[in-house]
Design a protein around this nucleic acid. Structure first.
Lengths: 155, 155
DNA sequence: CAGATTTCAGTGGAACTGACATTT
DNA sequence: CAAATGTCAGTTCCACTGAAATCT
């Protein structure tokens, strides 16, 4: 991901959708770079966070919580299970299910990733002071909320 | 693109990078949907805007201006040339080059796309009043600027 | 049987890499 | 020859579809 050096065609530069896309790309890259140092991908962090908040859970539950597609979850869990950061065990109570749980190593990994995510946020928002950072997250949160609610009812 | 219904795991919901990614995804989808009605993709709009600002230009120039990768440009121009929205002609002055130019139909197409892009922005920012919209674009612009400048020198 | 869960194979767009031929 | 240009084939990542097997 080298990302266009943004010659900023005049007509694009003012478009919120374009600004969002470009900024999100930088954000994603910063986070990815931080993760890569621990051989991790953003999906791993999202998954581990969801798992940490849920406790041992089925893949379907993790999918709903993390927003990761079920088919992608399979892959991500495979990757994490191979490194013994999570454990995948059949649920004796419901044999359709796998119960996924964090291992101690997984918990450590999550903490390391967390630190790096924070670092990436700081790099991302470097030009903004704390008040402005809150303004930005506040505005984004409201926009996002609006669309999330619309989509929930629509599905 | 159905997009996760965003169950907003607590630890993600506050992360600017996550908010940006999610919001950008909605923005991208809104723009894409608007374009799809005219059998167009976002790449087409970016390309046509660049071309309109440049006037007849080589593919390399369009790539630099639009931020679209040269190899992707080939495809996008093929698609637009097939519909006679742009014209690809060899440059007599430099036979390595193709000169790409807008046809009248391409210009009309661009105007139609422009209207739809505006509509998408409005859908995107629906929950914000005009002052807040400016705040958001202002903050995003500053963040983006910071990273663009960093990357320009670094390449 | 409907419905949920897990898995797998595959699609599509965006962005990129690498190689190549051609021309300046 | 180095550099620029255009083309093509292929890769990676995210997000998603569709289908199947298994189980409640």
């Amino acid at each position: 991901m080298e990302i266009s050096e943004v010659p900023a065609p005049a007509r694009m530069a003012g478009l919120p959708s374009w600004l969002l896309g470009q900024t999100a790309a930088f954000a994603y890259r910063l986070v990815s770079e931080q993760m890569a140092a621990l051989n991790a991908r953003p999906y791993h962090y999202r998954l581990l966070v969801a798992l940490d908040e849920l406790g041992p859970a089925s893949q379907a539950e993790i999918g709903r919580r993390s927003g990761i597609h079920l088919s992608d979850l399979v892959t991500a869990i495979n990757e994490l299970a191979d490194r013994e950061l999570v454990l995948r065990a059949p649920d004796p109570a419901d044999r359709r299910r796998n119960v996924i749980s964090l291992t101690p190593a997984g918990r450590r990994h999550l903490r390391q990733l967390g630190k790096r995510v924070v670092r990436a946020q700081d790099q991302l928002l470097a030009p903004l002071d704390p008040a402005e950072r809150e303004q930005l997250t506040g505005l984004l949160g409201r926009v996002l909320d609006h669309h999330v609610r619309r989509n929930k009812s629509g599905s």
